[in-house]
């Protein structure tokens, strides 16, 4: 990352927000229309974490739109990171952890791209990623932290982190640069047409990401009326004025999970692992051809996953409401 883009200037941040139409307006569009809001080379943050509330349909649409050269940031990266590298959508991923998941072993696709220097995985501690987004959300250029100090995780970040002493106590701290993505992709359970988004269950870093980003592309399991939002404003986590697009995508995180809606589609994840562990290049290409470039539409992709599989995942997803 060049030094100019490590921390966005406060002038730029304020100017970008000021330039956006922040009035209450409808923003409902298709995945394809939303994809045009992302430019090649943008820094795109992904909401969710590991196999949870991954904005998979939107990533899928960006790959299909042949976007290139994105820098991706996410708390913890799973199969979506593999697809970003394998498709050429992005060449750099900023994250604390990157693999499919411990039950599938180390991602061969991640290993292939990083070890062959075809792409970069910039490693930060999990809390460091979170505090970078939080600093971005707070409109300040850095955040001090008491971790990453003394480790090689900090050492290999070079000039991207700065050891500092507290101006009040003199204690040793690590200064982390703010992260203000150009675009945030966030998948939620429900939102209204204006972009007021309500989240169930685990929030991960999504609220900070939304506030830090220059604009949010929301995908949502369903669009609800503004009246429904106003009946429970305490459940609204992302305010409409951060949002530029609202796309209704049922099962929009498949094959990952969406809290209270559906669990991960383990059959798809097992198939993906089997394909890519044999040959990370050919396996990922086959998966992309079959499931990303092949289908006519997102519902067409879901048909390939299968009705029975989706219903089972949904039944398991709703179990938490019985506890």
């Amino acid at each position: 990352m060049s030094k100019e883009t490590l921390v966005k200037s406060y002038d730029t941040l304020r100017r970008d927000v000021a330039a956006r139409d922040r009035g209450l307006r409808e923003k409902v569009m298709t995945l394809e229309e939303a994809a045009t809001l992302v430019s090649d080379g943008d820094h795109v943050a992904l909401g969710g974490c590991t196999l949870s509330r991954t904005p998979m349909a939107m990533i899928w649409a960006l790959i299909r739109a042949r976007k290139q050269g994105l820098t991706i940031s996410r708390s913890i990266t799973s199969t979506e990171g593999d697809l970003v590298f394998a498709s050429g959508l992005g060449r750099k991923i900023i994250s604390s952890w990157f693999s499919q998941g411990i039950v599938w072993g180390i991602s061969k696709v991640m290993r292939h791209h990083v070890e062959k220097e075809l792409a970069e995985f910039d490693e930060w501690s999990h809390m460091a990623i979170g505090l970078r987004f939080r600093a971005g959300a707070m409109g300040i250029p850095f955040m001090p932290v008491r971790s990453m100090i003394g480790s090689d995780v900090a050492r290999i970040r070079g000039d991207e982190v700065k050891p500092m002493n507290c101006p009040f106590t003199g204690e040793r701290l690590m200064a982390l640069p703010a992260l203000n993505p150009d675009v945030a992709l966030i998948h939620v359970q429900r939102a209204d047409a204006y972009g007021n988004a309500q989240l169930d269950g685990l929030q991960f870093m999504d609220i900070d990401i939304a506030m830090a980003a220059n604009k949010v592309i929301l995908t949502t399991e369903r669009i609800v009326s503004n009246d429904q939002i106003r009946r429970a404003p305490d459940h609204t986590r992302i305010p409409f004025f951060t949002v530029e697009a609202v796309v209704e995508v049922p099962y929009g995180s498949v094959p990952h999970e969406c809290y209270g809606q559906y669990e991960p589609i383990f059959a798809q994840l097992d198939r993906y692992a089997a394909l890519t562990s044999k040959d990370p290049v050919a396996g990922a290409k086959q998966y992309l051809d079959e499931y990303v470039y092949g289908p006519k539409s997102w519902p067409d992709y879901l048909s390939m996953v299968g009705m029975e599989t989706l219903l089972t995942a949904s039944r398991r997803g709703r179990v938490i409401f019985n506890d």
Binding site: T50, M127, G130, S147, G317
Partner: peptide, 27 residues
């Protein structure tokens, strides 16, 4: 759960909170 980030981790929990904030409890 397949990781510490899926809904299976939240069963009958006292609280769910943003991951940055749960990590800050360490600090």
């Amino acid at each position: 759960p397949p990781s510490t980030n899926e809904q299976r981790c939240t069963r009958r929990a006292n609280m769910v909170l943003p991951s940055t904030d749960v990590l800050l409890l360490l600090q």
